[in-house]
Design a protein around this nucleic acid. Structure first.
Length: 604
DNA sequence: GCCGTTTTCGGCCCGACTGTTTTCAGTCG
């Protein structure tokens, strides 16, 4: 188990405690930045010599020593000391929208309010109004925040957030004053979960005075429950996720994933489209890097554009200055001596140091689906229907990979049924012109790492996707040994959804990713990015580790019904976050190359 | 607490909105 995440967590907690205690904000930021560095790191900080720690972004001598202390003793003394001074409930209060470190400190130290229940009591008896800067409106805002938080303990699934965003985007695009509307924020960056939605609308040149009407159109979208922020060019709304928000909400609304989400809108004229899009896409940390880079080049960057720094007080766009670049993101990056950086890579994980143009995998590059189920197990399509759907999407290859015998709940095939199924696939192949139908199986990796069919049967298949389905609570060492055994099996092509996680549902296995990717590379096994938005497994940071190690990647939809093909975009954005290129993705290879690679397995 | 294409000391991202203020602090993204 990597030390990176626990380390990131404890450093982030220290930053928050320093903040509420009123310590130097730059020290706070230093801890926050270091936490992010470890969160995005692929190599394990547990194994790094001090010199290597010091080479990391934002890690200096003091933080390096804290890392070493943490991995040696399991604690950081300074953290424990801070924790003894800050009640945990005060940290909870800072999670409320509208309550920052200063407010939390006033509540705690001047109002003796040290947790959210205490805050609710102080609101109920009115005693909160005696504290400085706490008025009626503030109290109302906090009450709403508490209710909102209670209903939204989890971030939203990517697939569901996308569905909600499209409701607003389609509505805005239909407005006569709007040239275009897009999702920005973490949705555009393709993160696996979304905290709130950011929508950007661009006015037509002929309708520059209509920003307020566009914001009005946005605020009045059916389903909007409240409007916490409303300005001339912006608005924030909260929406109840009812039955009007697409098929996922209908399927999953009652399953405890939070009944509302905040959606932020920004309206912009075309002249500032690029700088607004850049600003609103983030990540915040990426934007800060860009602004620092602008300053180093004698410029300043904001959502209003990139300007020459003329030393005058006041924001340049309010003084009539002409920007160096503002209308497109490309122009801004160019003026900062950078290539266009894809949104998925904007996480302050070293992307500004990337030389040359980026060419990450794109949706149209994908030409094959190698993980799909039919009615034979738990899918809804026949072999021919599956092939026709895949062909419609422009694929040259579809692999039929129904479940193996141990997945009884999914209708897994006993050996005899699989033999018949293989014969059926062979017969179907050729009946749909222009696409190759391969006979495969999604074979269970049993808890000891052995496979669910014997080798003679596996040898009859064109594609073997080996996946863990049960025993997903194994300890990391056992899980690692299990998956390594499956990877080293000579007939396995693809390791399917390697950790078995379900986002917001279960954590899945926590194998040693470094060992996994090294073995996958050595045994020519492709690691799957399962594109279903509840899985996205491998996750982005693991994909990055696989790419750094030289592994091959498969991006598959794990098709059970026709709509599952639509999830491919989420798999692709996860791949892009891991810096996957077309060359490394077997689904992007031409048919001949892919088929030759599949045939080579087990013959060497 | 970190960092160096003005710096090993003195900086450290930018602007809008909100609420409680008589001119601004706090929060957010």
């Amino acid at each position: 188990m990597s030390l990176n995440q626990p380390l990131a967590d404890i450093l982030a907690r220290m930053a928050k405690m320093l903040d509420v205690l009123g310590e130097d904000t730059f020290k706070v930021n230093a801890h926050t930045r270091a936490a992010r560095t470890f969160e995005g790191l692929t190599d394990d900080a547990a194994a790094m010599p001090r010199e290597q720690l010091l080479s990391l972004q934002g890690v200096g001598p003091k933080l390096a020593d804290k890392v070493i202390e943490f991995r040696t003793t399991g604690r950081i003394a300074e953290h424990d000391e801070l924790a003894s001074r800050v009640p945990p409930g005060v940290m909870d209060m800072m999670e409320l929208p509208g309550v920052g470190p200063k407010t939390a400190r006033v509540l705690w130290q001047e109002g003796s309010i040290s947790d959210i229940p205490g805050l609710e009591r102080a609101i109920a008896d009115g005693s909160i109004l005696s504290l400085p800067r706490m008025g009626e409106k503030f109290v109302t805002k906090i009450k709403e925040s508490i209710a909102f938080r209670r209903a939204n303990s989890q971030r939203l699934w990517l697939g569901r957030a996308d569905e909600v965003a499209s409701v607003f985007i389609e509505r805005l695009r239909a407005h006569p004053a709007v040239r275009d509307a897009v999702a920005a924020g973490s949705l555009r960056r393709g993160r696996d979960t979304i905290g709130d939605l950011d929508i950007l609308a661009c006015l037509r040149e002929s309708h520059l005075a209509d920003a307020a009407r566009v914001a009005e159109c946005f605020r009045t979208t059916p389903g909007v429950a409240s409007v916490p922020v409303s300005g001339e060019n912006r608005a924030s709304v909260r929406v109840a996720l009812g039955h009007d928000f697409g098929r996922w909400s209908r399927t999953h609304a009652a399953e405890g994933d939070g009944p509302s989400i905040q959606v932020d809108l920004r309206v912009t004229p075309p002249a500032t489209w690029g700088s607004m899009l850049l600003y609103f896409t983030g990540s915040k940390e990426h934007n800060i890097r860009l602004r620092e880079r602008a300053i180093a080049r004698g410029m300043t960057l904001s959502e209003w554009g990139l300007f020459k720094d003329d030393g005058q007080p006041g924001a340049p766009h309010t003084r009539g200055c002409t920007p160096v670049a503002a209308d497109t993101e490309e122009a801004i990056y160019h003026a900062l001596d950078l290539p266009f950086i894809p949104p998925e890579a904007r996480e302050d994980r070293g992307e500004l140091d990337h030389l040359g143009p980026w060419r990450l995998i794109e949706l149209p590059d994908i030409r094959a689906e190698l993980h799909a189920h039919t009615r034979a197990s738990d899918g809804v399509l026949t072999i021919l229907e599956l092939a026709q759907d895949a062909k419609r999407r422009g694929f040259h290859t579809i692999a039929v990979t129904d479940h193996s015998q141990s997945s009884a709940q999914a209708g897994g095939l006993k050996p005899d049924r699989l033999r018949q199924h293989i014969a059926d696939v062979r017969e179907a192949n050729g009946q749909v012109s222009g696409i190759t139908i391969l006979a495969g199986s999604e074979v269970d990796i049993l808890s000891d790492g052995s496979l669910d069919y014997d080798d003679d049967l596996l040898r009859e298949l064109d594609v073997v996707v080996a996946s863990p389905h049960a025993a997903l609570s194994q300890d990391p060492a056992t899980a690692t040994a299990r998956l390594l055994r499956a990877i080293s099996h000579p007939l396995v092509h693809i390791l399917g959804h390697p950790t078995g996680r379900l986002i917001n549902r279960r954590p899945g296995l926590s194998p040693d990713i470094g060992a996994l990717v090294a073995s996958a590379r050595a045994h020519h096994v492709a690691l799957e990015i399962n594109a279903h938005w509840m899985r996205l497994d491998l996750r982005d940071t693991h994909v990055r580790a696989a790419i750094d190690a030289g592994c091959l990647i498969a991006i598959d939809c794990d098709v059970h019904e026709p709509a599952d093909f639509d999830n491919l975009a989420f798999g692709v954005s996860t791949a892009r976050r891991g810096l996957v290129t077309p060359e490394r993705c077997i689904n992007a290879w031409p048919a001949e190359r892919l088929h030759a690679w599949l045939r080579a397995k087990g013959r060497t």
